[in-house]
Amino acid sequence: MDGYDGGAHGLTSLYAVDALDPQEAAAAEAHLRGCADCREELVEVREALAAAVADEPAEAPSAALRARVMAALDDVPQLPALPAAVAPAASASEPDDELSRRRARRETDRTSAARAGGTTGRRAPRRWVQGLAAAAAAVVVAGAAVSGYAALQWREEARSAQQVALAVTQVAGAPDAQLVDAQGGAEGWGSSRVVVSRSLGEAVLVPTGVEDAPSGRTWQLWFVTGDAARPAGTFAGAGSAAVLSGAVDGADAVAVTLEPAGGSETPTSTPVAVYPLTA
């Protein structure tokens, strides 16, 4: 279409240098999942680039940096190996794709039990609540790590993971907790839900089946009141349950849009999911 030969095949080497716009990068990733030749090309181009990067840069890494990294190992739990069957094909650039799959499996098990109850507005079953909290504790640390936080914040992250887990338990366990299914649900958001407690004024996103946002973009949550949308936090990766920022107040709905990395002041795209809240 632009006279540039190759279609999705032709995107591979540009993807290897991270030179694609977000939409193109998403197309390249989709193509790579199904094209062994392009995966091979990607590996080779990356090897060639890494080889071209100086082994001995003008300024070597400082001893202090090494010491900080070694000291931080205590705070960084190692992930278990993946079962061979789900080993990612295009790996390096999506190091955490498998996390979302593991999560998705866990969540599917859990929510299929929860789904028995019917539609919007029911109480969250206790088993589901407990499982949800455990999942939040296990995965939030990992999710935070890949979304670009400074590694020095690891200790802080671990603490906040516990806080998220606690908050999720509180919201989902509140007497007036409502479990709201996504309406719309484009781009893999169809199975996601929001748990909201009006009495606590808090809402939690349960991103079942949701994939990482494309490179350079982020999922962003919104409290919608009438036709005004209030930012409720960004959600870069497929990670775990997240507590929305800000109070529910009189919001009519929660919505999710895809925004440029860093988030937006107001939504700039059509929501991929909307969760209507009852009064």
Binding site: R46, E47, A50, V76, P77, A145, A151
Partner: peptide
Amino acid sequence: QEVLLEVWRQAARYDPSAGSVGAWAT
């Protein structure tokens, strides 16, 4: 620092058939 800690965290998931350790980290 983040990247090296990521190497530590993901070590069990490193797949040698998907490239060298150096290219992976880079």
